[in-house]
């Protein structure tokens, strides 16, 4: 299984990857993307089983990336990991086809709760 982690912050990518390991997903391949455009391209080239993406990113936001992916016919499972979790954002995420939205700060338990069904 392969997980694509998209965040413009290298520090936050490391924290997401560390939390994935703490949640027990330590045998998955991890691919990193530094913004939405990079994530969009890496979904095409790396065919991940799940995308975990930040929302606010330069060049292309996480939401724009998800919309572009769905527009191109990709149905890759997609979840947001973002510093905001307002009801409006959760609604926008769900409308665009996201499976979940994890608000920062998160714990390993939060990851387990949301990823259990996706990476069974």
């Amino acid at each position: 299984m392969k997980i694509l982690v998209a965040d413009d912050s290298r520090v936050m990518r490391q924290i997401v990857i560390r939390t994935l390991r703490q949640a027990g997903y330590d045998d998955h391949d991890i691919v990193e993307a530094e913004d939405g455009r990079d994530a969009y391209e890496k979904v095409q080239s790396e065919s991940p089983d799940l995308v975990l993406s930040d929302w606010n990113m330069p060049n292309m936001t996480g939401l724009e990336c998800l919309q572009a992916l769905r527009g191109s016919g990709s149905s890759v499972p997609f979840g947001f990991v973002t510093s905001e979790g307002s009801p409006e954002m959760r609604e926008k995420a769900a409308d665009a086809g996201a499976l979940f939205l994890i608000a920062k700060p998160f714990t390993a338990d939060t990851f387990t709760e949301h990823l259990e069904g996706v990476l069974a």
Partner: peptide, 30 residues
């Protein structure tokens, strides 16, 4: 760059949660 990134992310996470408490709709910058 690493220090800017780490400090920026801490502000981002604290700011995102402060924004959630304040009246909306509002927009969070980078």
């Amino acid at each position: 760059e690493d220090v800017d990134d780490a400090m920026g992310e801490l502000a981002n996470v604290v700011g995102g949660n402060v924004k959630a408490v304040l009246p909306g709709p509002s927009v969070l910058g980078l």
